[in-house]
Design a protein around this nucleic acid. Structure first.
Lengths: 131, 131
DNA sequence: ACTAAAAACCATCACGTTATAGTTTTGGAG
DNA sequence: CTCCAAAACTATAACGTGATGGTTTTTAGT
């Protein structure tokens, strides 16, 4: 379920007009219903809070826009990373399948050969996950 | 001499904000000084009056914009016509020069040959000039 | 006539406001 | 439960407003 402007306004503690304005200048995005009503998703609440913080820190909405664009870019990077990780996972599971077809001796030597790499990969993944 | 926003506002009997707004949405044009002040020329007064009339007649500013665009297009047409007339004048004066090099008999027959055309041209020009 | 400082102007931002017109929700009548 | 009208909500237009930060003009003193 998405939020109508009034609901979002209440939840984010700003006026409708502010949301209207932000939407017009591209700080917020909204889907439009067939009757042209705007529908915001819940992430807009946090986005509005973030904007308020930035404003409180003395930034102009234009500055905030840049910040948000950076953040969005990071978000996209994250998505990217996620995709890459998914790809890696697939590769790894493929390797696992290969391993299952090996005999014990081959298996052990192979495991040794890649143990370093997999370890450091796991460590990096842990860094990403923690916090 | 051009008008600053306050001067135009007073002369046209609207607020500065209105002029600001109209300028932003492209209803009015302004030159900018090096310090970014807007400078309007006197025709803006009449333009503003026109806009007020249109609004009074129930038109939206968007409608007014269209009307003004038409008017501006006509203006351009007029400029075009003026140019053409200037061109014609040149042609005519060339003909006059030619005539001056003719003898009387040739001259008379020539005059007869073109009298119809020049008469109707003159009449059309008169139509353009009057009121 | 020259200058410094106040007064008057101007631009832009970030909403606020009022009016108009369409949409959705809701409380009751049947 | 259904239908419908009032109440609540929404979109957009066309400025209004107050704050902030420059620019120009005016004015008063030297």
């Amino acid at each position: 379920m998405k939020l109508k402007i009034g609901e979002l306004a209440e939840k984010a503690n700003v006026t409708r007009r502010t949301i209207d304005y932000y939407t017009n200048i591209g700080l917020l995005q909204a889907e439009r219903s067939p009757s042209n009503y705007r529908y915001y998703d819940y992430s807009a609440i946090e986005r509005l809070n973030f904007i308020e913080e930035c404003k409180h820190a003395g930034l102009s909405l234009d500055d905030v826009k840049k910040k948000l664009n950076e953040r969005d870019a990071e978000e996209i990077d994250v998505l990217d990373l996620r995709l890459k990780i998914k790809g890696l996972e697939k590769e790894v599971s493929n390797v696992v399948v290969q391993l299952e077809n090996k005999n014990n001796i081959e298996l052990k030597s192979l495991r040794k050969k890649i143990s370093n790499e997999s370890l450091s990969l796991i460590q990096t993944l842990l860094l990403l996950i923690k916090d």
